Simulated assay, not measured.
Amino acid sequence: MSIREQFRATKKTDIKDENAAAKPLSSGDKTADKLQIQAIAEQIGELQAMLYAANDKKVLVVLQGMDTSGKDGTVNGVFGSINPEGIRVISYKAPSTLELQHDYLWRIHQQVPRKGEIAVFNRSHYEDVLITRVHDWIDAAECKRRYAQINDFERMLSETGTVIIKFFLHISKEEQRARLQERVDDPTKHWKFDIGDLEERKSWDDYQKVYSQAIQATDADHAPWYLIPANSKTHRNLAIANIVLETMQDMKLAYPPAKKELIDLKVK
């Protein structure tokens, strides 16, 4: 079984049945695991150089998860060895007044990866079927329509050369409590703390339900969801790095063919 198969979600995935503390890839040596992550990150960087040079295919990585699940940490740990010219990280916040004047996918489509680029979405279009359902800003019928629209959108991206990888970073409620408390206790991390996170935490069970529903409704072979146990930050990065590496290796990336006019050319 490949690592992708090990973490692949299904149409029956229910988050509440998954163990957020699982560490199936861990060697038991945290230092060794971190060295492995760095080695894989460097391999991803080499593949990205080929992606950028060929200027043909594109990669979209979607990171979703509850507050403190480690989206920023994943960006740093997994994608930190990539040449900045070939990667873009987009963090989605509450939509602006201008964005609200358009359909909910308008701001998303503007940020999808260009040829030769990896785009990492730190939160994404999935917020429009998550927080909107938890707070009853849209009803079930509208949510179902959005699932269909998202499926169509992602299929279009895939059919036009974008490889899509979607990750749900799964932490336990107790782990979130500990991480939020750490931010409160450390003044240097106060900038990370939003009092609104405590209000959203009250809807924990509702979020687990709508996440499960969204994953079930939008998992597809061309846009797969991976459920990543994320209580361990090191294991989280190890799992995601391996999945990204496997996916990019399957893309059969290569540098463009040599230019005939440059063969045997001597620079004077």
Rank of each mutant, 00 (worst) to 15 (best):
E159K: 10
E159S: 14
E159F: 06
T160Q: 12
T160Y: 09
G161V: 01
T162F: 05
I164D: 05
L169N: 02
H170M: 11
H170Y: 05
H170V: 06
I171K: 03
S172Q: 08
S172P: 08
S172E: 08
K173W: 10
E174G: 09
E174K: 12
E175D: 09
Q176N: 10
Q176K: 08
A178D: 14
R179L: 09
E182Q: 14
E182Y: 12
E182C: 09
R183C: 11
V184T: 13
V184H: 13
D185F: 03
D185P: 02
D186F: 02
D186A: 03
P187S: 03
P187F: 05
P187E: 05
P187W: 02
P187G: 04
K189C: 10
H190A: 13
K192N: 04
F193C: 10
F193K: 06
I195G: 14
G196C: 09
G196K: 12
D197Q: 07
D197A: 04
L198P: 10
E199I: 12
E200H: 07
K202S: 11
S203H: 15
W204V: 02
W204N: 07
D205K: 11
D205R: 10
D206V: 11
Y207C: 07
Y207Q: 10
Q208F: 11
Q208A: 07
Q208P: 09
K209Q: 15
V210W: 12
Y211Q: 02
S212Y: 10
S212H: 06
S212C: 07
Q213I: 12
I215H: 03
Q216Y: 06
T218G: 05
D219G: 01
D219C: 06
D219W: 01
D219E: 13
A220E: 14
A220Q: 13
A223F: 04
P224F: 03
W225D: 00
Y226D: 00
Y226Q: 02
L227Q: 09
I228P: 01
I228Q: 00
P229A: 01
P229I: 01
A230D: 00
A230V: 00
A230Q: 04
A230N: 02
N231I: 06
S232T: 00
S232A: 04
K233C: 02
T234S: 13
H235Y: 04
A241Q: 05
N242S: 14
I243M: 05
I243N: 02
V244C: 00
V244E: 06
L245Q: 09
L245R: 13
L245P: 08
L245T: 07
E246R: 04
E246F: 05
T247Y: 02
T247H: 06
M248L: 00
M248R: 04
M248T: 01
M248E: 05
Q249C: 04
Q249E: 15
D250A: 11
M251G: 08
M251D: 08
M251E: 06
A254K: 15
A254I: 09
A254P: 13
A254Q: 15
A254E: 15
P256T: 11
